[in-house]
Simulated assay, not measured.
Amino acid sequence: MFWFFLIALVVVVGAVTLAVAGGDGGGPVLSEALPVGLRGYRMAEVDDALDRLAAELTERDSRIAELEAALAGAQAAAVGGPELLKGERPAPAEPDRPDEPGAQGAQGAPGDPS
Rank of each mutant, 00 (worst) to 15 (best):
M1A: 14
M1F: 10
F2L: 12
W3E: 12
W3K: 11
W3H: 09
F4V: 03
F4I: 11
F4Q: 12
F4R: 13
F5C: 14
L6W: 12
L6P: 01
I7A: 10
A8K: 08
A8I: 00
L9P: 00
V12L: 14
V12K: 07
V13T: 10
V13M: 03
V13Q: 07
V13A: 15
G14Q: 00
V16K: 10
T17Q: 06
T17P: 01
L18I: 04
L18S: 12
A19F: 12
A19M: 03
G22V: 10
D24F: 01
G25R: 07
G25D: 12
G25L: 09
G25I: 04
G26W: 05
G26V: 06
G27D: 13
G27C: 02
P28M: 02
S31G: 05
L34C: 10
P35G: 05
P35F: 02
P35C: 01
P35M: 03
V36T: 12
G37L: 06
L38I: 03
L38E: 15
G40W: 09
G40A: 09
G40D: 06
Y41I: 07
R42T: 02
M43F: 06
M43Y: 11
M43K: 15
A44T: 12
V46W: 08
V46Q: 10
D47C: 01
L50D: 13
L50P: 07
D51K: 09
D51G: 11
D51T: 15
R52A: 14
R52F: 06
L53F: 11
A54Y: 05
A54R: 06
A54E: 11
A55L: 06
L57M: 05
T58C: 00
E59M: 09
E59V: 04
R60N: 14
D61L: 02
D61W: 08
S62P: 00
R63W: 01
A65W: 01
E66P: 02
L67I: 01
L67N: 05
E68D: 13
A70R: 04
A70Y: 01
A72F: 09
A72R: 06
G73C: 05
A74G: 00
A74Y: 00
Q75I: 05
Q75H: 08
A78T: 07
A78D: 12
V79W: 04
G80V: 07
G80C: 03
G80M: 03
G81D: 08
P82V: 04
E83P: 06
E83Q: 09
L84C: 04
L85G: 09
L85E: 05
L85V: 03
G87I: 02
G87Y: 02
E88V: 05
E88R: 00
R89K: 06
R89P: 02
P90K: 09
P90W: 00
A91T: 02
A91M: 03
A91W: 01
A93I: 02
A93Q: 10
E94V: 03
E94P: 00
P95W: 02
P95V: 07
D96S: 14
G102V: 03
A103W: 07
A103I: 08
A103E: 14
Q104R: 10
G105E: 13
A106Q: 13
Q107E: 15
G108P: 14
A109E: 09
A109V: 14
P110T: 09
G111D: 11
G111I: 11
D112M: 05
S114F: 15
S114I: 04
S114L: 15
